[in-house]
Each structure stands twice: as structure tokens, then as C-alpha cells.
Nucleic acid binder design. Structure first.
Lengths: 197, 197
DNA sequence: GATAATACGGAGTGCCGCTCCGGTACGACC
DNA sequence: GGTCGTACCGGAGCGGCACTCCGTATTATC
């Protein structure tokens, strides 16, 4: 990564090294903690303690919990966009590429407990990093749906946003319900509902 | 313990009138508050204050928040069971009776913000009033699905539990997402997924 | 090395679901 | 109607949460 060229535009800029170091530590600690106990159960104070940093520092770097979560999940959201690009580039297209992508989306949401609800509210976060990234995911979902429609795989009136909503709902069920492994079955039902007829 | 004889001699343990009165007040206050702000946002202390009762009293009558919610939503859950019975009794059956019932279920869950998550976890509440009532709803759902299957309206492998899960997921989306009125559309998609083919 | 800008740390705030216990008032029995 | 045991009440209090404030330590600049 090259030195930020826009430094000249800011008179007293230059992020201090300790600030950058602490930010990295916080992200690492949060990422680990989210993996262990889920985003919902992870307490902000615990994230700070694990990073060896005071709570105040955590809150200065991330104005609220959603912002921290956005930072953590942002990368794998980008991964979803990349996967979509790969699937769209493959020719001939895999027969069930849409299903593969939705399954990946569900896995991503399910990975951290409590993500589904925040994901569903992402449209509120307009302007935030999470909001922007969710919009990117919506865009690739629309592209995937368009491609699947061209191939006659899904009904003509399905939108990318609807697909994401359905996937989010299934993911939410997976983390909310106690019965194990209903996800695949529910996805089957959903895909029967959206396929071309 | 051989104390049963002594307690048995006291006829019917006589619930004190103030206890009964306070319980009624609590249920009324909770019902009103849930209608206004939703079950999630309603604080237990507020329920108690509104009922003109100390917090301790509230917690003695209902050991946790879910128990209070169970009491409040119990009646309309019973209503769902009754609606199912009516739909099953009608002959000839309404062409889309299953859809009508699911829509009612979704409306019921959606009415109070935060109910969907608790509903999805209902199977944990085995033995509780809410758990029992949810099981009753699952039973009528199974009956409805069986009838719809006889009529060739839904696919043969659909279970009542799956139907409820799908309905819960749609209801959750309705309360979690910001976009208005996606519910009917998503139900359309779901019903296309579960219908006979 | 002095100085000002900047970030740090952690005590503090308000709210949550929930608990505990001293005191109150209810209802049974005489 | 009086008295008495006790079921019930009220509310202070607990631990944990997301989040804030401000005195202090660290950093970059000269």
C-alpha cells in the first residue's frame, strides 16, 4: 500500500502510529471474538480488553457496535462480490451458480450470530461502510439474477433485492431456530419458489 | 414429603385477591404497552409502573419476560388454532385456505415487534405456556398442510413445521427490514415454492 | 527538548432483565 | 371483631450492556 497521496489536502492530518496500531489490534480482537461467540454476544468491553486497549479507545475508532461489525464483515462481503464475479465470468455457467452464491451468502450471514438482523437493517446505514458494501452485494445479486433469468433458470419477476431478502430470512432462521440443519431444505423450497415456470 | 395431607386439608390454597387483581392489571398494562411499542422495546419496569405495581410483583407473577409475552400472545395464538379449525371445517374448502391461515400467522407474529425471534425459539420453552401453545399451532399447521396435500395444493413433502418456519421468516423480515410491504410478495414466492408440481 | 495536537484509559451514565428481603395486608380461625 | 401466620407486595439493588467524558499520556513538529 502506498503512502496516502491526499495528505497534502489535510493541513494537520497524519494519523498517529499508536492510533493505527490500536485500530489494527481492535479489528483483530473483534474478529476473533466474533468467531468465538458471535457478533451479538460479544461485548464491546471484551473486545477492548482483548485488544489490550481501553473502552474509550474502541469507541473513538468505531462510533457504535454496528460500525465495528461493518469493519469485520466487510471483507467477507467483498468476498461474496468476488465470488459473484467469478460465477458470472465462468462459461459455460455452472448449472446452479445462483444457488451456490446464495448458499455462500447464507453461510456468511450465519457465521456470526446476530448478523442477519443487522444485515436486514443495512439499508438504514446509508453512507456507512456497511451500507455501501451491502449495496454492492445487492448489485451483484441483481446481476446474478439477471444472468439466471437469461438462462431461463428463475422466474422473470424476481429481483436481486428479493433474493437477498429470502436468503437473509433463511439465514436468520438458521441462527434463531433450535432445530439443526433446516437450512438446505428451506433453500430447496425457496428455490422451487423462484425458479422459472 | 408428607406435607401434602396438611396442604390438602386447606381447601384450594386460595389465591389472594390482591394477587389476582395485580396479575390482571399486569396483563392489561403489558398488552397495552406491547401494542404501543412492541414486545421488544417494552421494558419490564415500565409494564410494572403502568400497572401501578412494584417490579418485584411483576417478576413474581412472570418469572421472565418470555413468560409475560406468552401470556399476552397466548390468546391470539389460540385464535390461530380456531381459525384453522374453521378453515378445516368449511366445505367445500376455500381454494386458498392455507394461504389465508399463513397470512394470519404472519400478521400475528408481526403485530408485536420482536415476537418472531421468540416464536422461533419456542421449542426451547417446552413445558411453558408459550411452548405448549406453539406446539398446538404446529399441530394445526400440520393438519392444514395435510388437507392441502389431499387437495393437491401443496407438494407432498412439505411439513407443518416447515410451513411455520417459512411464515416466521417472512414475518421476521417484515419487522426487521425497512422496506414497506414486501410481505405479500415474499409470501407469493414462498407459496410458489411449496405448491404441488 | 519544548510545545501543541492528538489519542489513550477508565471511571462514569443510564437502561436493561432480573433478584432479594423487610415490611404489609390479607384471609383463616377463634 | 380481634389476632395471627403467611402469602404477597414494593423497591432498592445487582451485574451487564452500549456508550460518554475528561484528565492524562503519547506523538509529531520545530
Amino acid at each position: 500500500m502506498s503512502r496516502e497521496a491526499a495528505e497534502g489536502s489535510r493541513p494537520h492530518a497524519a494519523v498517529r502510529t499508536d492510533a493505527r496500531r490500536n485500530r489494527a489490534r481492535l479489528i483483530e480482537a473483534a474478529s476473533a471474538l466474533f468467531d468465538e461467540v458471535g457478533a451479538d454476544a460479544a461485548a464491546m468491553n471484551d473486545v477492548a480488553r482483548r485488544a489490550g486497549v481501553g473502552p474509550g479507545t474502541l469507541w473513538r475508532h468505531f462510533p457504535n457496535k454496528d460500525a465495528l461489525i461493518a469493519e469485520i464483515v466487510g471483507e467477507s462481503l467483498d468476498g461474496l462480490a468476488n465470488l459473484a464475479a467469478d460465477l458470472l465470468d465462468t462459461s459455460p455457467p455452472e448449472p446452479d451458480f445462483l444457488r451456490r452464491w446464495v448458499a455462500a451468502l447464507v453461510r456468511h450471514i450465519t457465521r456470526h450470530q446476530g448478523l442477519a438482523a443487522r444485515f436486514a437493517r443495512a439499508s438504514e446505514h446509508v453512507g456507512s461502510p456497511l451500507g455501501a458494501r451491502c449495496q454492492a452485494v445487492e448489485q451483484v445479486a441483481a446481476d446474478l439474477v439477471a444472468r439466471a433469468r437469461e438462462l431461463g433458470q428463475v422466474r422473470g419477476d424476481l429481483t436481486g433485492a428479493e433474493l437477498i431478502r429470502l436468503a437473509t430470512a433463511v439465514a436468520w432462521l438458521d441462527e434463531a431456530a433450535t432445530e439443526p440443519d433446516t437450512t438446505a431444505r428451506l433453500l430447496d423450497l425457496v428455490f422451487d419458489g423462484i425458479r422459472a415456470r
